[in-house]
Design a protein around this nucleic acid. Structure first.
Lengths: 230, 230
DNA sequence: CGCATACTTGACGTCATTCAAACCGTGTGG
DNA sequence: CCACACGGTTTGAATGACGTCAAGTATGCG
């Protein structure tokens, strides 16, 4: 419920609002609110008709669908500077939940829709982001459709290694998994047990090393990339 | 290579360009070319750096990725009035191929990017489309990740039935499959044989009836919806 | 300390794939 | 007109990868 402090915002140069002029951003900021979510807290749920939109400042979110039998499917992860929110639809189709303590900059749908009308650059920025999301989702689809459990896990670990080293061209050689085994499993369309077994196998063949429950060390990144099939 | 005839265009009210004023559309049309693709012809391939953008006027396209082992994965189908093309990326990530004889209205990337700058309404329209594509891709992801072969096929047939009756709220009770068995299989992440078997089973339990190689009659749409798990 | 939550490991079952063969409609040439 | 080849499809039997069920092992928190 605080007013926004764009001046000190860590994602001020990378988020969608970076394309706005100083004055435009101030105007938009006047309509926004910062919000903090603890792990497991929900930003909005599928079916909500007053779902907010938001830019993620720090932390991580998951976007997931719940099917008729109540099983969850993670559709997307959101990293800092990412934008969340379905424009143009009467209600949200998916749940959005914090994976770690997360700070967000939220806007009501009407405010964002007005801003899109008023600031063409913002609509272009969101279009770009939307296309990137589409690409990421298609990559995940490509994985889950054909690849073996081993390849899926290897690819996911590879992606995490990229995300963990924010240089984007080099891999972090050691990082913490942002997801539990259960979350990894349902993101990849597998079961917890299969994921656990594959972790064991990847460790046996010397591709990775488990450090505690969440820590991963990349012993042989090339092998991991090989196994991922891309 | 013909100039465009927007006045008689069957998708003039539903495509992205519908949001433009008469004058704006004429200006854009001056930069566009119509093009006809026969079944199997490619609009552009993954890796192309001068990939065009296009609005589909009639026919159907597939967007697909080819993985390292050479197996294809269909990521998306494009129906008339759909927009194709990756903006903001240096080269195309996926192949786009005609499933049936298709008529398109194509633009070079620079022309589209200029139009987005010049006409804010166009950028909003493309944002909306992009979000819809994202939603469709996520639905497909949800399917392929968890559901059984039977559920996947049932859901796909349901989607086709919706697409075939352009009323969008009611199902066509009889339609032609736009895809071969092989294409269905790789869209759903299955094999040809599995798809064929599941067709047989759906027919046995009285959900559908096969009419020749491509024709499908929906005998029991409710059952089909039931099996699809949504 | 004791319970809860997450993770690992093993034995067994199931469903989709794989490999192989037959089938069908269509077009081609003898 | 028939023989034949060809692409797409169907069907069958065997294999194997992943799921299911069921213990068992950390790790953390009240």
């Amino acid at each position: 419920m605080n007013s926004l402090a764009c001046a000190s915002c860590p994602v001020r140069d990378s988020a969608a609002c970076a394309v706005l002029s100083e004055a435009e951003r101030d105007a938009l900021a006047a309509a926004g609110r910062t919000r903090v979510l603890k792990r497991g807290e929900m930003l909005f749920a599928a079916g909500d008709d007053e779902a907010a939109c938001a830019t993620l400042i720090s932390g991580a979110l998951k976007v997931s669908a719940i099917d008729r039998e109540g099983t969850e499917q993670i559709l997307s992860l959101v990293h800092p500077s990412g934008f969340i929110g379905e424009l143009f639809t009467p209600f949200a189709h998916h749940d959005v939940v914090a994976l770690t303590e997360s700070r967000l900059c939220t806007f009501s749908r009407v405010d964002i829709e007005r801003a899109i009308e008023d600031y063409p650059a913002l609509s272009r920025a969101l279009l770009r982001r939307s296309q990137e999301d589409l690409l990421a989702t298609r990559n995940l689809l490509e994985m889950t459709a054909h690849a073996s459990a081993e390849a899926r896990l290897a690819a996911l670990l590879h992606d995490f290694a990229v995300a963990a080293s924010d240089s984007s061209c080099h891999l972090a050689s050691e990082f913490e998994l942002p997801l539990t085994r259960g979350e990894i499993a349902n993101m990849l369309g597998l079961t917890i047990e299969t994921v656990s077994r594959k972790f064991g196998e990847l460790e046996e063949i010397g591709a990775i090393k488990r450090k505690g429950k969440r820590g991963i060390e990349l012993v042989n990144p090339a092998l991991l990339h090989e196994l991922s099939g891309r």
